[in-house]
């Protein structure tokens, strides 16, 4: 697990429970790597993980990706209905990002600051946020050179 681990003070996030299909994703996250399933036959990425490639039926293999992405959408959710989350906390800014590796390869994250967000904004992953005994890959906006 990373040395710069962040733990939420106010909110105990639901802890991911790995299973036979998803375990490699969470194991890699604990090692500071973002991995996504990629089909050994057709090369298509897919997320979340599945037992088979949904494009060709081939064998998906977890593959490290760059962690570079662009912003697809976002919402500021007030009191989201999340297991175990008490009401009345600060809103959560939920985002969807598209990894640069493949159009439509989307992951969910949340961001710390409700900064000015726009579709296509450059985002980057960070792996240092703990949820229980797991590490959450989280994406944040990247300052673009002016």
């Amino acid at each position: 697990m990373s040395d710069q681990q962040v733990v939420d003070a106010a909110w105990a996030r639901p802890v991911p429970v790995p299973d036979d299909v998803t375990a490699p994703f969470w194991a890699a996250a604990r090692e500071g790597r973002l991995v996504v399933q990629r089909c050994a036959r057709c090369g298509t990425f897919q997320h979340p993980p599945r037992a088979r490639c949904t494009s060709c039926g081939g064998e998906p293999v977890f593959t490290e990706v760059s962690g570079d992405a662009t912003l697809v959408s976002w919402t500021t959710a007030h009191d989201p209905v999340v297991p175990g989350r008490p009401r009345g906390l600060a809103p959560v800014v939920i985002v969807v990002v598209e990894l640069v590796e493949q159009p439509g390869l989307w992951l969910v994250s949340d961001v710390d600051e409700p900064a000015e967000l726009r579709i296509g904004a450059t985002m980057c992953v960070a792996l240092g946020h703990a949820a229980g005994d797991q590490v959450l890959p989280r994406f944040h906006p990247v300052e673009e050179p002016s």
């Binding site: 996030r13 991911p16 429970v17 989201p80 959560v92 959450l136």
Partner: peptide, 8 residues
């Protein structure tokens, strides 16, 4: 597991 920890 890939969404709820982020509030989604």
């Amino acid at each position: 597991a890939f969404a709820a920890p982020y509030g989604c």
